[in-house]
């Protein structure tokens, strides 16, 4: 009984609770707010990747391209155009979706490692082109001017409450879309294509169209997250927003949480982001890179012992609990 109620009401309750947090004075200028915002943003990014990588089974290392296009859209509107970021962000989202379809259509022919390596190549091409494209600042990137704090500018100089609400909206929107798609016809088709493309096609599912639609939606969401990141980070440059490192962030959070699951991306972000931010803050005296050394170790251990991620651990624990419970009555009798 309990698990059913949790499944039905868990997500709306969580969003409601997140939206109420600022009322308790938790959100403001501190480091905690920063970490919370990053958790929500990374959960949304990983969920975007999860749609095509988890539910669709196409492991892409190219999502930083879409993230970067969204980031540059917002940043260009503000830094070069002198406007509010909204129009630029919208343009970035649309361009990212179009680019994703144009790039993925031929690449979906490739299988396994060949697809993965092709997406590496695409990231490198975009990275290097953006590095020399002076119209958008080239290798120096775009620096934000000082603007008045407002929702119109989506800018707050010190108080992070506005950004926090923005992150909650993105998180809720993305997770709600996935929640809906999980139970919609499209979600079933997509998983059918992942499990067996030929079988799904023989039953009349247009696998290419399903994968392209998932990729376009995934790219649009990645671009939205990128636009938010540009506003939050206050500058964009190719090594930060459009690089393999950024691509790996999408993949790692999703995989550590558990791919192809609804809660996985949030759990992955809940573990990884605090780890990353706090180790960076507290282990700095041990020299550079210690946080990433620990990160690397965790990835290795997770892949060795539970490739299903945190969701995999949870379901293993639950299975054990159920097995223990079903054994108990016998002993009691």
């Amino acid at each position: 009984m309990n698990s059913k109620i949790i499944r039905k009401l868990g997500f709306p309750t969580l969003v409601f609770a997140l939206a109420l947090l600022p009322a308790f004075g938790v959100i403001g200028k501190g480091f905690t707010s920063h970490v919370l915002i990053l958790i929500l943003l990374n959960a949304a990014m990983a969920q975007a990747w999860n749609l095509i990588g988890g539910y669709g089974g196409q492991v892409s290392f190219g999502h930083s391209v879409f993230f970067g296009i969204g980031a540059y859209g917002a940043a260009y509107a503000v830094c070069v155009g002198g406007n509010a970021p909204w129009g630029g962000a919208l343009a970035g989202i649309i361009i990212a979706a179009v680019v994703s379809v144009l790039v993925s259509y031929p690449c979906f022919k490739l299988k396994g490692h060949y697809f993965a390596i092709a997406t590496f190549a695409i990231v490198e091409i975009f990275n290097r082109l953006f590095m020399v494209w002076d119209w958008i600042g080239g290798a120096l990137g775009l620096d934000y001017p000082i603007l008045k704090d407002s929702w119109k500018n989506f800018t707050w100089a010190s108080d992070k409450t506005g950004y926090y609400y923005g992150a909650v909206v993105i998180f809720a929107l993305v997770f709600a879309i996935i929640k809906y798609l999980e139970k919609a016809r499209f979600g079933y088709y997509l998983r059918a294509v992942r499990e067996g493309q030929e079988t799904a096609e023989s039953l009349g599912v247009n696998s290419t169209r399903m994968k392209l639609a998932a990729m376009a939606l995934s790219a649009a969401v990645a671009a939205l997250c990128g636009a938010f990141f540009a506003q939050y980070n206050y500058r964009v440059d190719p090594p930060t927003v459009m690089s393999l490192d950024m691509s790996m962030k999408f993949v790692l959070v999703a995989i550590l949480g558990g791919i192809g699951t609804f809660w996985g991306p949030l759990l992955g972000a809940l573990v990884l982001i605090p780890l990353q931010e706090y180790t960076r803050a507290y282990l700095a005296k041990l020299g550079s890179g210690v946080d990433l050394i620990i990160f690397g170790l965790i990835i290795i251990l997770m892949m060795e012992f539970q490739p299903g991620g945190i969701m995999g651990i949870l379901s293993a624990v639950r299975k054990k609990a159920i097995a223990a419970r079903s054994q108990k009555p016998e002993g009691a009798r």
């Binding site: 550079s288 890179g289 210690v290 990835i299 892949m303």
Partner: peptide, 20 residues
């Protein structure tokens, strides 16, 4: 994809060890 990601973890480990 486990070997790919595990060796990615290994690459982070080696690279940042050298950095450190």
């Amino acid at each position: 994809m486990a070997p790919l990601l595990a060796t990615f973890g290994l690459s982070m480990l080696i690279k940042n060890f050298a950095m450190n």
